[in-house]
């Protein structure tokens, strides 16, 4: 049984109890994906599976045989400590100060990537007024759609600013 993580194929764990989150962190030492609550309440563990955002703490690794997982490390595969090669959203998070401690940040960024894809598919949210029309990612829509990603330092304004900045530059595709 195999799974693809950030473009590389790897064997799934033997123990079926291992969550996708723990497999990433403890099995593969991909510590960019964070464990905040392990109960699906905080969003820190958000990763992309075939382009959709999921909470990796609520997912068993063995459920994802043959699937394609992208983590924060995969978003900036060419990234360096110097900042070159960062994903535009990662760059915008720095510029807009969309984090303080940095612990919820990978989840926020992965979630935002998945969120934009959802909106492009036309998925409505709780605050969408017209369910039939195409979704416009207003500030309010982004805030609602990002509300599953908690931040305790209070970087909310910077996070939404960063997402809006990248959306307006139309580089998030």
């Amino acid at each position: 049984m195999e799974i693809t993580i950030n473009g590389s194929t790897t064997a799934l764990p033997q123990d079926p109890r291992v969550s996708l989150l723990d497999f990433l962190r403890e099995g593969l030492h991909l510590f960019g994906t964070k464990k905040g609550c392990d109960q699906g309440a905080c969003g820190a563990c958000t990763v992309l599976v075939d382009g959709e955002r999921i909470l990796s703490c609520l997912a068993l690794a063995v459920q994802f045989e043959g699937r394609d997982v992208v983590t924060i490390e995969g978003l900036s595969a060419a990234g360096t400590a110097g900042g070159e090669g960062l994903h535009p959203l990662q760059q915008a998070f720095i510029g807009c100060d969309g984090f303080q401690c940095g612990y919820c940040t990978p989840g926020q960024i992965c979630s935002a990537v998945g969120m934009v894809a959802e909106a492009k598919r036309g998925s409505p949210s709780h605050v969408t007024a017209d369910l039939a029309a195409a979704v416009t990612l207003t500030r309010n829509e982004i805030q609602e759609r990002m509300s599953g990603n908690l931040c305790r330092c209070g970087a909310h304004n910077g996070i939404i600013d960063a997402i809006q900045q990248v959306l307006s530059a139309e580089v998030l595709s």
Partner: peptide
């Protein structure tokens, strides 16, 4: 001034205490 540890944090590359193995 943008945070000097920003590039590490947005890449998930800042190592927290449960990330030492």
């Amino acid at each position: 001034v943008s945070r000097l540890d920003g590039p590490l944090k947005v890449q998930g590359a800042a190592r927290f205490s449960a990330e030492v193995a």
